[in-house]
């Protein structure tokens, strides 16, 4: 008994049949044993003939011929598991005893993520509302509805496009789009750093730790991107957990390396402008105890000492 599968180039199953015939004809014409609905396939495209070791594929003078992976002329002996490309269709030939691929364990994370699409109804409006409020806070002019809408569209557009990209990939690799799940993932990934920045700014302002604030924001930005990437990867591809972790780690490390290279490449550039912590917040968020003016005068020498040290350092580097 032989199993024949017709799949499209994305791997999606179009047709599966079992047969015990010794000779099988494949083509677009209705008198074939396997009828292929593909305009690039000839009416009588190929013939499979059973042999002692499997099958033999014979090209029936088709217009586009038979191809295999890395092989232009695919006619010849066929073993179980072989794939013959005809037009835009791929014919898979299996013996009944052929061992299928290993079973993939159901992934709880994947189940949760694929269910995210159901929450799009409230996640999308919530993120859009957040975007609108965020834009409103950061505008100092009269905001018209049109401006507001335009800013929100600008804000969510990247997530809409990225989600479409992942959905397309999912469609190709797993025949599942999950567009709204991807959209939720990327909208949230975009909103979390902005939301987090409000929190880190409160901490920074009240501790005076500007550098910590900036590092925390970068970690938040990088972390949310990494999580979103992993989540979309999980949904769009059928990778095993180990491969997923390796892919996310690899991409994360590559992105981190690019960031660090960039950082160190420009860290040598002379900064003509003062890099001071200019955070100011409304009185209700001032929780730290102000110091007397004398503290500025008392700590002044340290600023000059540090300026001298920076100057000496830059000279030594030269």
């Amino acid at each position: 008994m032989t199993v024949l599968e017709l799949r499209n180039r994305g791997g999606q199953l179009l047709h599966r049949s079992m047969t015990d015939r010794e000779v099988i004809t494949v083509g677009r014409a209705f008198d074939n044993d396997v009828i292929v609905d593909d305009i690039y396939v000839s009416p009588h495209h190929l013939r499979l003939t059973r042999t002692e070791n499997g099958w033999h594929a014979e090209d029936l003078d088709s217009l586009n011929g038979i191809q295999r992976k890395h092989q232009q002329n695919g006619a010849g002996p066929v073993s179980s598991g072989d794939q013959l490309r005809i037009g835009h269709t791929v014919l898979h030939v299996y013996e009944r005893e052929h061992q299928p691929a290993g079973t993939l364990k159901l992934d709880r994370a994947e189940s949760i993520l694929s269910g995210l699409g159901r929450h799009a109804l409230w996640v999308v409006p919530l993120v859009v509302l957040f975007q609108a409020v965020h834009n409103y806070i950061n505008s100092w002019s009269e905001v018209t509805w049109l401006d507001g809408a335009s800013n929100v569209i600008d804000g969510v557009l990247p997530a809409v496009i990225i989600a479409a990209g992942w959905a397309l990939l999912g469609r190709l690799l797993r025949h599942r789009t999950h567009y709204f799940a991807h959209l939720c993932i990327w909208l949230v990934a975009d909103a979390i750093p902005a939301l987090g920045a409000y929190c880190t700014s409160l901490v920074g302002y009240n501790t005076g730790a500007g550098t910590l604030e900036s590092v925390a924001n970068q970690v938040l930005q990088f972390g949310s991107l990494a999580v979103a990437f992993w989540a979309s990867l999980l949904l769009a591809t059928a990778m095993r957990r180990r491969t997923q972790v390796l892919t996310v780690a690899g991409v994360g490390l590559a992105a981190g390396a690019v960031f660090l290279i960039d950082h160190f490449r420009f860290s040598d550039n002379f900064n003509y402008y003062p890099d001071y912590y200019g955070r100011v917040k409304q009185p209700v968020f001032l929780w730290r105890q102000p110091v007397p003016d004398e503290d500025v005068r008392r700590e002044m020498p340290e600023i000059f000492d540090e300026a001298d040290r920076l100057m000496r350092e830059s000279q030594e580097d030269d």
Partner: peptide, 19 residues
């Protein structure tokens, strides 16, 4: 204006003060 060879970079500090 300064050039890189003329001066070091700025060092800054900040305070919330109350009179």
């Amino acid at each position: 204006s300064v050039r890189e060879d003329d001066a070091g970079e700025f060092h800054c500090d900040d305070w919330i003060v109350q009179d």
